[in-house]
């Protein structure tokens, strides 16, 4: 059982699943274009419906973190790279999105595929 002192210590220290593993290189780098997968698990995911099957660009590599989808069902071991990925509002919402604006969201390797080359019109 955690005492008051224990819990204050835990909250002051924090906890993260982030690890460093120089042997594992991220699959994507800032500037890479990606497409999000379409997934509908019955269990937890951090890939919202509004950005499934959408094309975006990686803007930052956050590092290796637990994958929420499997951690929610007890897998504390798996780590994947997590990236900030930016989408144009028009990609997410069509013509009702503002052309000036964007949405950035953190996505893991399991959610992402490399974007195919744009089709020539």
């Amino acid at each position: 059982m955690l005492s008051a002192a224990d819990i204050l210590d835990i909250l002051a220290t924090g906890a993260t699943t982030r690890i460093e593993d120089p042997a594992r290189a991220p699959a994507f780098a800032p500037g890479d274009e990606v497409v999000t997968r379409t997934l509908s698990p019955l269990t937890h995911t951090r890939l919202p419906r509004y950005c499934r099957g959408k094309r975006g660009v990686v803007v930052k590599v956050h590092g290796l973190y637990a994958l929420p989808d499997v951690r929610a069902i007890g897998d504390e071991e798996t780590r994947e790279y997590c990236y900030a990925v930016r989408f144009d509002m028009r990609e997410l919402w069509g013509p009702q999105g503002a052309a000036t604006d964007s949405l950035t969201i953190d996505l893991w390797d399991s959610y992402l595929l490399p974007a195919p080359a744009e089709a020539t019109p």
Partner: peptide, 8 residues
């Protein structure tokens, strides 16, 4: 429990 279990 973990935060992901809590969210789920």
């Amino acid at each position: 429990y973990s935060d992901d279990e809590f969210r789920q």
